Computed example of a mutant assay.
Amino acid sequence: MKNHKAFLMIGISVTLALLAVVLASRWISQQGNISTSKVMVAAVDINLGTRISPELIRSVDWPSGSVPKGSFSDAKALDTRVTRVSLLRGEPLVDAKLAQPGASGGLSAVVAEGKRAMTVRVNDVIGVAGFALPGNFVDILVSTQGEKSGTSDKDLNISKLVLERILVLAVAQEASQNETKPKVVSAVTLEVTPEQAEQLDLARSVGQLSLVLRNQIDLKPAQTAGATKQSLLYAQLPAAPAAPVKPVIQRVKLSHKAALITPRIVQDCQQVMTGAGTVTQCF
């Protein structure tokens, strides 16, 4: 009986093993028959603003069910196109990452539609110690002095946030977004709208600019009133204690008639016997 049960268990185990082998081989054969499509990818790392040439791209097999939207299967369709962002080796080329057909290479192809590129002078402090790199977003502060009104001697120095979430296109003459090491430069090129370009030009003419590096995923606008000398130095001072109020005593002169009707004050009196006689004392 025991041998019969042992042979039964061995038979079941062998059957299950054969079934697993059959299923695995079928799955492998199905994976080998997945349909693919040709997709053009970067053969090397490509910097933004680069004109596409045949030696920079190559064709690879890509699963048909996951072909990136806007990708290219023909190298001729990419001839003379210009990249708007940096591409890594093996990354598919899609239309959203390329400038419009006919655009020339260089920084002008990187500027988004409706935007402008504007350069401002910076130093190691204004440029956030060289950490404001292409692809980063910055806020712009201006430190200036307001216009006096009347004869007021009030200090009107103010520091105000004038522009937020401005894209850094290039530092000095470099626009590569692959660099991560800080680099101190003398000029930074920013991507702004025409209205922001006017504000930035006015801000740098009336005061000193400062760049403030911000998180790339932070989209919340800042609501600030600006910092002045008064708000910086005196806003947190405790209020001076109020002076004690002294009671005011008024002397009122009563008329003769009022004095007559004034009630008399009742006093306690007592008589004290002394050697000189009786003395009356009132309290």
Results as ranks from 00 to 15, higher is better:
Leu8Arg: 11
Ser13Glu: 07
Val14Asp: 06
Thr15Asp: 06
Leu18Thr: 09
Trp27Lys: 15
Gln30Leu: 09
Asn33Ser: 05
Ser37Val: 08
Arg51Glu: 01
Ser53Asn: 05
Ile57Asp: 07
Gly65Lys: 14
Val67Glu: 00
Ser71Arg: 02
Ser73Phe: 02
Asp74Ala: 12
Leu78Tyr: 04
Arg81Glu: 04
Val85Trp: 12
Leu88Ile: 15
Ala99Asp: 03
Gly105Arg: 02
Gly106Cys: 01
Val111Pro: 09
Ala112Leu: 08
Ala112Lys: 12
Lys115Thr: 10
Val122Asp: 01
Val125His: 06
Ile126Asp: 00
Asn136Pro: 09
Val142Gln: 04
Thr144His: 08
Ser152Asp: 07
Asp153Gly: 12
Ile158Trp: 04
Ser159Pro: 04
Val162Leu: 00
Val162Gly: 05
Ala170Asn: 04
Glu174Met: 00
Gln177Lys: 08
Val184Tyr: 08
Val185Tyr: 11
Ala187Asn: 13
Ala187Asp: 15
Thr189Gln: 02
Ala197Thr: 11
Leu200Gln: 08
Asp201Gly: 12
Arg204Thr: 12
Leu209Pro: 02
Leu213Met: 01
Gln216Pro: 09
Ala222Ser: 15
Ala222Tyr: 13
Gln223Glu: 14
Gln230Leu: 05
Leu232Gln: 04
Ala235Cys: 14
Ala235Ser: 10
Leu237Lys: 13
Ala239Pro: 11
Pro241Arg: 02
Val245Thr: 00
Lys246Glu: 05
Ile249Gln: 06
Thr262Arg: 12
Gln267Ala: 14
Gly277Arg: 07
Thr278Asn: 13
Thr278Asp: 02
Val279Thr: 11
Thr280Phe: 05
